[in-house]
Amino acid sequence: MPVIDVQKDLDQRTITITAEFAAPVERVFGIYADPRQLEKVWGPPTHPATFVDHDLTPGSRITYYMTGPEGEKYGGYWDVVSVDAPHGFEVRDGFADADLNPVESMPSSTNSFRFEPIDGGTRATYVSSYPTAEALQQVLDMGVEEGARAAMGQIDDFLAA
């Protein structure tokens, strides 16, 4: 399993996930830069993603939805804040409605994705920062940790294929 550590800090309003992948930094970053590749690993296996708009450049909005086992769709978006290819990027991440518009009543976060070379591959560090401890607790209660572990668990197999 690629996830090696998960730290939840309600005082700092963050969740930090560290994972290691058996591929170079450029290859791991490339998954996030290409919507067709990202669809293979974003979201847990039971809720595959479809990216509708994807342009990993600062100022752009990336939109997607995940489809559940019964066909239900859950929208999301990323507002791209910065990109430092292939070392990482930062986005504002939120929930979206059926038309992929932001749902302001749901929690949003600022997410930093960082990739660094390690012996034999890449260490990825994902830090999600929430505006309130309640917002962080809400997504934890929704299963964000379990979903992230399941999604990231698909990356090594995808890279090996």
Rank of each mutant, 00 (worst) to 15 (best):
F51T: 03
T57E: 11
E116G: 08
P24H: 08
F95H: 14
R61M: 09
A124Q: 14
W42C: 10
V81D: 06
W78V: 01
R149S: 03
P131R: 09
A148H: 01
R27E: 13
G143P: 14
T57G: 03
F89R: 02
L159E: 10
Q7V: 15
I17N: 04
D141R: 10
Q138G: 02
G143F: 05
N111S: 12
T16N: 07
S129M: 06
I118Q: 13
S109H: 02
L38D: 00
Y64R: 07
G88H: 04
Q137F: 03
A23W: 06
V6H: 05
A22W: 00
I62P: 00
P48D: 05
M152Y: 15
G88M: 08
L136I: 09
H87W: 10
T63Q: 10
M106G: 01
E72Y: 01
A19M: 07
D157H: 12
D157F: 05
P2A: 08
F113K: 09
G68T: 13
T14H: 09
S128G: 14
M152R: 02
Q137T: 14
P44T: 05
R123I: 07
L136S: 03
I62A: 02
T125M: 03
D93N: 13
E72Q: 15
E26A: 15
E134A: 15
S129F: 00
Y32L: 11
F51R: 01
V52H: 07
V28T: 03
G76V: 04
P102I: 11
T46C: 02
L159H: 04
